[in-house]
């Protein structure tokens, strides 16, 4: 299950985007999801992200996001129903509760809870897309320009994570060969066996850290400004993605100021379509943000486009 949440290189266009362009695109998607309260805008974003996830070949693993957000949605609905008294269309009045007063379930609270659950699904899907399209190393390399030392620590941790995990399995195997049965014995005995494992892992890892430090010293760590061996190339597709993200962001800011992307839930539900501007701005935002998905489709089917961007 966890493999589906990790980056797997499939040679897709979205995976070949410059990390800055990909981050800007995902940042705009997540930011808009947190700004919009209008259900149509949230639905539009969700549809777009599902298309992007399909373009990143990750639709099979998206079920994890869906399951997780369904679980959280129940909680969001429950909290909203318990504490909101602002809705005027009351569906059911319940008993008096100690802290919250009279239980009062309104249509507005249900709709608000549903819209917020939709928002949660959109935000989770954006992060799922991040896992699919940006390799951690490329992300950290981008960070290294801003904060070299912090990026180095993070890179080392991502490198050491699978190593320490393997080392833990190896140590467990060695202890088993020596007759340590982790499942046998009382709770206290089992705890002592696990402590033996953790202790060995800690000491061997700390010993290895000196070797790591020596290797860093041998490569002139801290002797001057850091050198850069590798540079990401900014290609036309990255410029197009950045421009599309900027256009969507500016349109969303305009829509937010005009009130088109917000929806009034309380005290009574607002009209879903207030004016034509609501639909027009939604069209521009979704159109701009779908550009990377369209380019990705063209990248697969049209070798000429593939070569040009």
């Amino acid at each position: 299950m966890l493999e589906q949440l990790q980056f797997q290189d499939k040679g897709l266009m979205l995976q070949h985007l410059h990390p800055l362009a990909a981050l800007a695109y995902l940042g705009v998607l997540a930011g808009l999801a947190l700004v919009f309260t209008h259900p149509l805008y949230l639905l539009g974003l969700l549809g777009l992200i599902i298309l992007a996830i399909q373009a990143a070949d990750g639709l099979a693993g998206w079920g994890i996001c869906l399951k997780f957000s369904l679980g959280m949605s129940g909680l969001i609905l429950l909290v909203n129903l318990l504490v909101v008294r602002a809705g005027e269309t009351v569906i059911w009045r319940g008993p008096q509760l100690p802290i919250f007063g009279e239980l009062c379930i309104s249509l507005e609270a249900i709709c608000f809870g549903a819209a917020m659950s939709l928002r949660l699904l959109v935000v989770l899907s954006v992060f799922y897309l991040l896992n699919l399209i940006i390799h951690p190393d490329r992300l950290l390399r981008l960070l290294s320009r801003l904060a070299g030392r912090s990026a180095l620590v993070l890179s080392l941790v991502t490198r050491l994570f699978p190593y320490v995990f393997r080392q833990m399995n190896n140590l467990q195997e060695v202890l088993r060969v020596r007759g340590v049965d982790f499942q046998a014995g009382t709770w206290r005995e089992r705890q002592q066996k696990y402590w033996l494992l953790f202790n060995s892992l800690l000491i061997s890892s700390l010993e290895n850290s000196w070797e790591l430090a020596e290797a860093m010293q041998a490569r002139a760590f801290g002797s001057g400004p850091r050198s850069c061996y590798w540079r990401e190339v900014f290609r036309p597709r990255d410029v197009l993605c950045l421009l599309a993200s900027m256009l969507a962001l500016l349109t969303a800011i305009y829509g937010h100021i005009k009130g088109s992307s917000t929806f009034q839930f309380y005290p009574q539900l607002d009209y879903l379509l207030k004016d034509r501007l609501t639909l027009l701005l939604l069209g521009i935002i979704i159109g701009a943000l779908s550009l990377p998905v369209i380019l990705s489709w063209g990248w697969r089917r049209w070798p000429y486009l593939n070569a040009r961007i």
Partner: peptide, 20 residues
């Protein structure tokens, strides 16, 4: 963290502990 003077040993130790 960026502006602090830090040795390679400290960086390696932090990375190992964070990995654990």
């Amino acid at each position: 963290f960026e502006r602090s003077a830090i040795s390679s040993r400290e960086v390696a130790l932090m990375a190992v502990l964070a990995a654990i």
